[in-house]
Computed example of a mutant assay.
Amino acid sequence: MESTWLVLAALGVGSVIGAAFVVVFLIAERRGSSAAKVVNPTIPEGIDEMLDALETAGVVLDPSNNVLKASPGALAMGLVWDRALVHTELVSLVDQVRRTGEATTREVRLVRGPIGDTTLLLRVRAARLGPRYVMLLAEDRTEANRLDDVRRDFVANISHELKTPIASVTLLAEALDHAADDPDRVRRFAQRLTEESARLGRITNEIIELSRLQAHEAIEGAERIEIDALVRQAVDQNRVIAASKRVDIAIKAKSKAAVYGDEALLRVAVHNLIANALTYSHEGSRVGIGVYRSADGVVEIAVTDQGIGIAEADLDRVFERFYRVDQARARDTGGSGLGLAIVKHTVQNHGGDVRVWSQPGRGSTFTIRLPEAAAEPTPEPEPSPAADSRPRTPEETRK
């Protein structure tokens, strides 16, 4: 009997111990789940999909400012590295939102990436996402800001460019009125008035042309153009000016190359390069124009002068609107400062690019590069009657 009670007692103790182990296990499991949630917190439903769909930058941060999720845009901008925000300005903005609880928007300039040197202008908004998280959204305003600067510069430059010929026209009109009794002075002032009016017309036409080029990314109704003939026509348009400056023009255009595009626009582009070379050439010097075909399917039109050259600091700016290397010389020749900008946009619209090499005192070479048009297929000759060996029908014989 005593042994039976001992057995029952042992079984009871075992049950208690087993139950205790179960309780301890459940508590440990719950604590483990809680710890896992802290280590791997979950983002509110739908935020993952939203961030993946964003074209701009989006980041979700936990209470320790660890990045839980970043959109592709945020990674591309270099805002996130190793699950953390790269820039202290963004961390400061997130901390401010945590303290105040209010959404905040700010414009910041940041260096792109942890080791980059490109500056970005971002419009950043940070706001709380539930009680624990903060969402940060960033819109890249760098290009928009640059375009705003370009527009302001354009308005300022065009106002300056038009002011001179308009003032000249006004003064010449007054001079004509005062010189009404002197035929020689009237003729001289009338000639100057005609020149200034023509300059106004050129500036206006080039502004319209440049605006048209910038509004279209591709040429509509492109046709096959023989480049050698086009270059010779552009050279002929500049021969009178070259002769007046005693500048010799040498042309090498026997490439038989062709491109697809707008012939009138390309002729203006080549004409502008030649006119620019003549403008900055010394009397008695030489300008060379050559057309070449490269093995990679590119047609090159190179215009080389022996003029004043361009400083290295100015090479990246020569294709800007109204930018001039030599202001005084351009004023004397009545240039508008738009010629090279028109060249750049024309060539880009034809799928090519334009490059420049120069050394001060030695001259410059501007090269237009365009994709070459594929050779036209040669039509197969129709078979001659003699080559037709089949028997002829009576109807064909009568014909």
Rank of each mutant, 00 (worst) to 15 (best):
P41K: 07
G339N: 08
L8T: 07
V23I: 12
V235H: 07
D316H: 11
S389F: 09
L162T: 11
E376N: 14
L136R: 03
E49D: 14
T279H: 05
A76R: 15
A330E: 13
R185Q: 02
A387I: 05
D314G: 09
A36E: 15
L68A: 13
Q348S: 02
A341D: 07
N65F: 05
G221P: 03
F154E: 05
L8P: 03
T105P: 05
V60W: 02
A387D: 15
A179T: 05
D184T: 01
P385E: 06
T56V: 13
N238D: 12
W5L: 12
E226R: 15
A386Q: 09
V13Y: 07
I225E: 04
A103I: 10
V169G: 02
V94M: 05
T104R: 14
I342D: 01
V270H: 12
E29D: 14
Q96C: 12
F322R: 01
A313Y: 05
D262P: 08
P394A: 06
A35W: 14
T118S: 11
V299L: 13
G46P: 11
G337E: 02
E55D: 14
S159C: 07
L8G: 04
V155A: 10
G290S: 14
D332Q: 11
V354M: 12
Q306N: 04
A234S: 15
Y280W: 04
D153W: 03
I274Q: 06
I158E: 00
D332V: 13
Q233C: 08
L147I: 02
I158P: 00
R398A: 13
I274V: 08
A328I: 02
G18K: 09
A175S: 09
V291E: 10
P183H: 02
I310N: 06
R286M: 04
P377E: 13
P131F: 05
